[in-house]
């Protein structure tokens, strides 16, 4: 038993999981248990933990998509803008201002929004894999231009819609649990099967460690990269659907604003190196939950608006230090030295 525990503590997901539990526990203590309160409202679960899961769903989806890009040593900073595009496409169609022929069909809206995200991802992939532009530069193009494209689609307005079917993407419940969670679970299972039950996970890590030698061993580096960025775009589109459904509208200027940084941070907190190589999708998902629980706890504790960001950044710094091997060794060194002195 203890052997197994020891083994688990060496797993990449161990520390992120501990941090998440620590944050939740700290919240529980500060709020006197109220944080974990859960009740049934209109036949679904209602409570802060559900809030974290639902509001964190878009970040989890993004983290799942972006992890593989980071594992190849690349990055994708266009996801926030792609979210805006997907929301703009979907809401414009549901509203009927775009493709009025389909009379606001939610299915058509979702399919086209996802295709738009996929197209954005492919564009990134082509720039990176074929034109050999550095990933941060290549994806920056869409990061900047994407919001403009989204505004072009909505004609610079916030498109408000009143479709219960569309709202279900964010506000719906199945078995008392929020629907976005099922989207996350689906994406998670698909990616886990793909990366762990086939050799592709190994290929991705190999590219991250050394892309040139991977190519010499016969791995189709370009094709895999293209696929990874296309997938990241698709996930961003999913996140965009979740976000726009939540506010019943496409808010192009604010949808997913700066969320790419949160997504990258989620992956980093999850312990995947931004230089590429070994990666863990579950750890990234936990990382996303950590970020969301920080936001939720800041609101729950009632930090004054002026210092919210400072509090958030302090927590992130502590988490990064806790994760740092060097820092842990330093601390351990201090303590053991003191132990020696005392002895």
């Amino acid at each position: 038993m203890s052997q197994k525990l020891k083994q688990f503590s060496k797993n990449q997901i161990f520390w992120p999981l501990m941090v998440l539990l620590a944050i939740l526990l700290a919240n529980g203590v500060i709020s006197g248990g109220q944080f974990f309160e859960m009740r049934i409202v209109d036949g679904h679960l209602y409570g802060r933990l559900i809030d974290i899961l639902r509001n964190g769903s878009k970040l989890m989806v993004l983290a799942i998509g972006i992890t593989m890009a980071l594992a190849t040593g690349g990055t994708d900073i266009s996801v926030g803008s792609v979210m805006a595009i997907s929301g703009a496409v979907a809401c414009s169609i549901v509203d009927g201002r775009l493709l009025s022929g389909v009379s606001g069909s939610v299915t058509v809206a979702i399919v086209l929004a996802l295709l738009a995200g996929l197209a954005c991802g492919l564009w990134n992939g082509v720039l990176i894999a074929k034109a050999k532009i550095q990933p941060i530069v290549a994806t920056m193009i869409l990061m900047v231009a994407g919001r403009g494209i989204a505004q072009l689609i909505t004609e610079g307005k916030i498109v408000t819609i009143n479709s219960d079917a569309y709202y279900f993407i964010n506000g719906g419940y199945i078995l008392g649990l929020p629907f976005p969670l099922f989207i996350v679970a689906f994406a998670f299972v698909v990616v886990m099967l793909f990366t762990r039950k086939t050799a592709s996970g190994l290929f991705i890590e190999a590219i991250g460690v050394n892309s040139v030698s991977s190519r010499f061993t016969g791995i189709k580096v370009d094709r895999i990269k293209l696929m990874i960025y296309a997938f990241s775009g698709l996930m961003a589109a999913v996140a965009g659907l979740i976000e726009s459904a939540g506010i019943k509208g496409a808010d192009c200027n604010n949808a997913g604003l700066l969320i790419e940084l949160d997504a990258i941070l989620s992956v980093a907190i999850g312990g995947t190196s931004l230089f590429g190589g070994r990666f863990s999708i579950p750890a990234s998902v936990v990382g996303a939950l950590i970020i969301q629980s920080i936001s939720t706890s800041v609101l729950a504790i009632g930090v004054a608006p002026e210092v919210t960001l400072v509090v958030k950044s302090l927590i992130v710094i502590v988490i990064c230090l806790v994760q740092s091997k060097k820092f842990k060794e330093m601390l351990a060194g201090k303590f053991s030295r003191r132990a020696v002195k005392e002895a």
Binding site: E37, G249, G302
Partner: peptide
């Protein structure tokens, strides 16, 4: 932040408290 998404998230939290 004057936005719908944040307004919703903050209100969710207020309602829990």
């Amino acid at each position: 932040d004057f936005t719908r998404a944040k307004g919703k998230e903050v209100m969710e939290s207020f309602l829990k408290t």
